[in-house]
């Protein structure tokens, strides 16, 4: 399976096509990008949930978002083992690359869901990934994706 490198429009299409998706918010996200991710989730409506990994549960709650605290490893484990209704797309944003590389490798090889990496660099083990870009370009891309899913 080859990773599909997506641009803003491509990412929007992937997000729109998903039936049920979970956005995993990684520990590296700071304030304004966190707001953008919240906006993205809101734009996707009821089909999207937010999983606050790392320490992001607290800032999200301060923003009025009641995102459940999640442990990334447990989310991965659920995708492998849970019998319940699982998301068909996991979206990752704000992760350390050495964390996300491992997570994506597990999901790619042993889980049935698709993955989308909305990070500043390309992730080979994701089904869909943004490509390398500067922090500013990334910030802008996320904003445009958040706006794109609403239109």
């Amino acid at each position: 399976m080859v990773t599909v490198i997506v641009d803003v429009e491509g990412a929007v299409r992937v997000l729109r096509d998903a039936k049920k998706l979970l956005i995993l918010v990684g520990s590296r996200l700071d304030g304004d990008i966190l707001s953008t991710v919240v906006k993205l989730a809101e734009g996707l409506g009821a089909k999207a949930g937010i999983a606050a990994t790392g320490n992001t549960a607290a800032p999200l709650r301060e923003m009025g978002i009641d995102a459940g605290k999640e442990w990334t490893a447990e989310v991965v484990s659920r995708m492998l083992h849970s019998e319940g209704d699982k998301p068909d797309l996991l979206v990752f944003v704000g992760f350390y690359s050495f964390v996300l590389s491992g997570v994506l490798s597990t999901l790619k090889h042993f889980a049935s869901c698709k993955t989308l990496a909305l990070e500043r660099r390309r992730f080979e083990n994701a089904d869909f990934s943004l490509s390398e870009m500067s922090k500013e370009a990334w910030r802008d891309a996320l904003m445009r994706i958040a706006e794109g899913v609403i239109r």
Partner: peptide, 16 residues
């Protein structure tokens, strides 16, 4: 966090 490079984890499934 660098432990993700261990590439093998032993995780329980609380739901089961």
């Amino acid at each position: 966090p660098h432990g993700w490079k261990f590439q093998r984890f032993l995780l329980g499934n609380v739901e089961d």
